[in-house]
Design a protein around this nucleic acid. Sequence first.
DNA 1: CTGCATTGAGAAATCGATTTCAAGCATTGT
DNA 2: ACAATGCTTGAAATCGATTTCTCAATGCAG
Lengths: 338, 338
Amino acid sequence: MTMDIKIVDVASRAGVSPATVSRVLNNTANVNAKTKEKVMEVIRELGYLPNAAAKNLRSQKTMTIGVIVPEINNSYYAEIIKGIENKAYAQKYKVIICDTGNNKEKELDFLNLLINRTVDSMILVTPQLSEEELARIVDMNYSIGIVGRYVGNGKVPCVFTDNVKFSKEVVRHLVERGHKEIVFLSGYADAIDSFERLEGYMKALREHHLPFLPELIENGDFNERGGYEAMKRLLDKKVSFSAVYAANDEMALGVYKACREFNIAIPGQIAVVGVDNDRISRYITPKLSTVSQPKIRMGRAIVDKILHQLEHDSLKEEDRVLVLESELIVRESSDIRL
Amino acid sequence: MTMDIKIVDVASRAGVSPATVSRVLNNTANVNAKTKEKVMEVIRELGYLPNAAAKNLRSQKTMTIGVIVPEINNSYYAEIIKGIENKAYAQKYKVIICDTGNNKEKELDFLNLLINRTVDSMILVTPQLSEEELARIVDMNYSIGIVGRYVGNGKVPCVFTDNVKFSKEVVRHLVERGHKEIVFLSGYADAIDSFERLEGYMKALREHHLPFLPELIENGDFNERGGYEAMKRLLDKKVSFSAVYAANDEMALGVYKACREFNIAIPGQIAVVGVDNDRISRYITPKLSTVSQPKIRMGRAIVDKILHQLEHDSLKEEDRVLVLESELIVRESSDIRL
DNA sequence: CTGCATTGAGAAATCGATTTCAAGCATTGT
DNA sequence: ACAATGCTTGAAATCGATTTCTCAATGCAG
């Protein structure tokens, strides 16, 4: 064990009381300039750093926020985390992470860090919890923030992109390229993102006076494999279609794989569009059209809101919800006139 | 503010002293079965969780480890973090992360969390710090672990793959395919990985009785752009070569880009091999030959060693260092006879 | 039935900071 | 010259758990 240096050590060496050292350290009251100088000198000399646990206990703050993501090794979440960490660090906060691996148990367990005061606030990225479950936490006056979905509760800051809006844009783009039979490849059927993207898809169809054909909807799981299998089921069904809108790039990769296997040309025979602007979308052949979301900015933004709320104990409703713009990036996989 | 439940609340409600509640909670001494049952019931009833700061302060432990990586949104580091987080969680530890963005200042600053006892241990992934700097920390009896490079100091657990060994394998593979003039694209010239990969490259040349030509070495920065520019410099120099061994996949992507621009066929005119088995390497055309490292396992392994050392206050030398096997994956970009 | 070991549980000390309370001293105004 | 005010500072309380110390009650052997 290291023999750590404590505030009393600094105090006695500087010939003052611990209270004074604390005052110098935190600039929390006037201290004679000379005394202050002496104390600071001793602090430097001994390389003193205040014990975190003691500080946390007394101040009832930890300067730490927790982040819960489904999968940390997925560029979408990794970038959001980067945004969160960078902003947090700039505000002197630390970040504890939890990779749930889509395990709701772990998500719930991790929320205990909020209750036992390990963290001051918790950011949930596309949580599995329902609105009611979130509400219960907030009602106990714990601070949480959500990334990736809208939350009705008037106290929960949230940051996300408008799934409905960009989905409509994707469909419009495909329609403009002459497509009339467009498949929608959903993610988890119960995920809010899937739902909203489907909603945008349907609204766009209506706006363009195209019929909604239920057989053109298939469920995946947001993973490559799910996209691959969904695509094979579609091909088996022998329904006719000329374009696929996959709820994310991962599933679009699955579509690519299936097409390669069945010798279907992209975009010659089938156009493909994904969502997320995963790095791979730019490198794969043909380059994948996709929707880019400002992931790092989303991370930074939620931290902003949470810390504002923590410090001011409130947030105006118009500041609570932030809808960030997403952008349709048309690349080779859909850029062809039918 | 929530009115948190404290141990005294549980105690009074159960008609016992806080000491007894603590004993029940931590199984640290005999408690009458009946009393114990009653206490546990009250704990469940009130949903009591012990305040973390108080616990940390008294027990001088935080059950938290810090992780410092250069870039969290880079699949290589993200996977290592995943391994760390998963293993840590299984052992009831939390993980605080730091994304330095290759900023040594931030790396040093973050190490203070070790000194102020925010974390029990710190894992550095390919740190910028020198052996001496690391030694200084360890000599003050702080616990650290290293991923991605060997450390001489007899107290620092480290986990890595043998750069020299797999570099020799890469060169052997290229030589077997008939290449004699092989470029080595280094990462940061001062990074340990660059150095060791270069060493392996040189040793392999010697073993195969090939001359070492300094003009075939170029420096990059481990990023795509660096690889791209290095490749252009090489082409400018008009030296002759038929293969490129890039110190990581990122730089190999840069090589791809340069080749596309100059209409050089891969692998027809130039073979390319990278390192890391980045997800993209499998999706890009032509598929990139690369070296895969067991990233998640590396993360899990370092946590194992650190916690063992924390608990037993020692580690046998043979347990301190772990060299994991890497695997050369030959794909299209190099799989052709010259 | 006495003496000694064992079990069970409370009172109080402790971890290392911050903050309140009170007081000493100097300065200013009348 | 004396009260009032402001500036510094230290002593002690506090945050909420864990752990040591102590002692009462019980069990068991002789």
